[in-house]
Design a binder for these strands. Structure first.
Lengths: 339, 339
DNA sequence: CGATGAATTGTTAGCGCGAACATTCGGGTG
DNA sequence: CACCCGAATGTTCGCGCTAACAATTCATCG
């Protein structure tokens, strides 16, 4: 494209009247460089618009300062937010982030993505794909890349960061119970996701602790508003249901819609609580009471865990499962049952 | 971490009983390698679990096969979807994608992000940040990286891919006019975004073409449901408004909420149309009539344009502005005015 | 004033790979 | 059988950088 090639270290050295090694020292902040020399070199760098060749540096230092993020569907609010949090944190630690979107949910895709990232010599990988199968697949990955899973249950042998889904679900369910409902139904997420399993477990625990009857959860949800709507039509047809805890906000939206179509009022006839606190939840009709997850923070912590693993080897401090406490956000989609 | 270092080409060569160059030829699919030799080499590669060192290859080929994506807020549905589309397409073309999230909207941030990506020697950059200021900043970037902007207006001198916002907005507005509304109000997006400008222009054009009165657009929106709600409260208070075209679906959601709170029925009292067709729009109360954008396709096309630019130099085929036609999706949030 | 050692700078040798050139091999041709 | 030509393979070099070591400078002190 452009005629002359980009300047290299030797060019800078020539202009500054030093050896290329001195330029290297300036670039790498070595202590023993005279102040005046340093300035001369920096001036030359600016003059030539020099930028170090990352490949050459990588070749000799064996470090790419690149991290990989594997994510199933970056379109969902959760994964997208985490990616954002990760990138911000990575920048501060001077790492690049390359992404690998998963084509499918199976073990093969996950391993392919890992492989792809390893080809690029990433120093570590964060996996945002909290399916049971994905976690299982991850355990077969050779230990020469640091790995951190996000929201991947308590599976040992893998460093992970997660929101305490169970606690959040329990809190939401208890809240509905406190409001006076005899029991709470659950619109569950996909069983293959750990988050869904944990939320269901939290819901179940709250119910059994209080001695409330545990109805079969509504299954078939895939996190989308559409499936929330589909299950919602069945829920709307069942007059026994007075309170529903949804596995996430999107499904809650679908449920709200189905309820409205059936003429069942929220919260007068049925109370609804979601999970995630997506930015839109506040503007649902009615505003959704939900459990807030700090995705950004999850992303940041995942990054920190990964950088730790890279810096101090894989076993430093065991395999901590960092857990973030979610909080209940009360809005108007839940109330006591009609007396 | 692990004791022995990863095998290099020379190791493979030794095991296969050939020179390292023959290994290189096998890896790069050179024609003149005997079939039996090729197989021997491949066997050795498998046996050792050899993977080529990307840095070394980059150093000599001067190609990183890495692309950068700059995005303002990957949390928004649009940017997230495009990123997804870009990554999928990039993988097929055998490129890696590294992301750079923008800290702020200003020119400085954009240039910093570009700089960061250039440090990593990306071969090209896709910018998803359709603010006027961002586009302006981009024009100062040296021509040694290929650049493609997504949704960045008709600014020349920059390759770009975009949805035809103006046509979409005009279509939506005309649709409301056809329904019998005397005029259509506009809940505008942030003026600093080209998409917002174009959608406003399309709305304005539809109105003037039909000779309908053009009311001042409601400004102050920032794409979020919250600002949609805030402006919505004002709209609800104005009985003259019978139809609103919102710059995006999220703001439409806020508007819907404000309308409901004020007891104004949709579509009976007021019709609402959005833009984007986010997956949730179908489940708003009521389901939102909106203009569908194919973000995935935008992402794919942006990638194709970028790869073209990389392969054939920056000027091949001029600076085409690829434009994608959006389509109107009729649902129940819009109807004719009360007679 | 010369010795001593620390601070500063220079020189050399790879890192792992692909391009360019050199060499060998194998199979027709006259 | 000598010759030639193309296919197959090997050798050498350098991409741009940092690490290790060598050489030089400089300040300090006896």
């Amino acid at each position: 494209m452009d005629g002359e090639r980009a300047p290299v270290m030797a060019d800078v050295a020539r202009v500054a009247g030093v050896s290329h090694q001195t330029v290297s020292r300036v670039l790498n902040d070595h202590p023993n460089v005279r102040q005046t020399t340093r300035e001369r070199v920096l001036a030359a760098i600016r003059e030539l618009g020099y930028r170090p060749n990352a490949a050459a540096r990588t070749l000799v230092t064996r470090r790419t300062r690149t991290l990989g993020v594997i994510s199933f569907n970056t379109t969902l609010y959760g994964p997208a937010s985490m990616l954002y949090g990760i990138e911000q944190a990575a920048r501060q630690d001077d790492y690049f982030v390359t992404v690998a979107a998963l084509a499918a949910l199976d073990r093969r895709s996950v391993l392919e993505a890992v492989d792809r990232l390893r080809d690029q010599a990433v120093e570590g990988i964060i996996v945002i794909a909290p399916q049971t199968s994905a976690v299982a697949a991850l355990s077969t990955v050779p230990a020469d890349v640091a790995l951190v899973a996000v929201g991947c249950g308590t599976h040992a042998s893998l460093r992970s960061v997660a929101v305490d889904n169970e606690a959040g679900a329990e809190r939401a369910t208890s809240y509905l119970l406190d409001l006076g409902h005899r029991t709470v139904h659950h619109l569950a997420g996909p069983r293959s996701w750990l988050d869904a399993q944990e939320r269901e477990a939290g819901w179940r625990r709250a119910l059994t602790r209080r001695g409330a009857p545990v109805a079969e959860p509504m299954v078939g949800g895939d996190w989308s508003a559409r499936t929330g709507y589909e299950r919602g039509r069945e829920i709307a047809a069942d007059p026994a249901v007075t309170a529903v805890f949804c596995a996430n906000d999107h499904m809650a939206l679908g449920l709200l819609r189905a309820l409205q179509e059936s003429g069942r009022r929220v919260p007068d006839d049925i109370s609804v609580v979601g999970f995630d606190d997506i930015p839109e939840a506040e503007f649902f009709g009615p505003p959704l009471t939900t459990v807030r997850q700090d995705f950004d923070e999850v992303g940041r912590r995942a990054l920190r865990a990964l950088v730790d693993a890279i810096d101090h080897g894989p076993v430093a401090g065991g395999m901590p499962r960092l857990s973030i406490e979610p909080t209940l956000l009360v809005r108007s989609s839940a109330a006591g049952p009609r007396s």
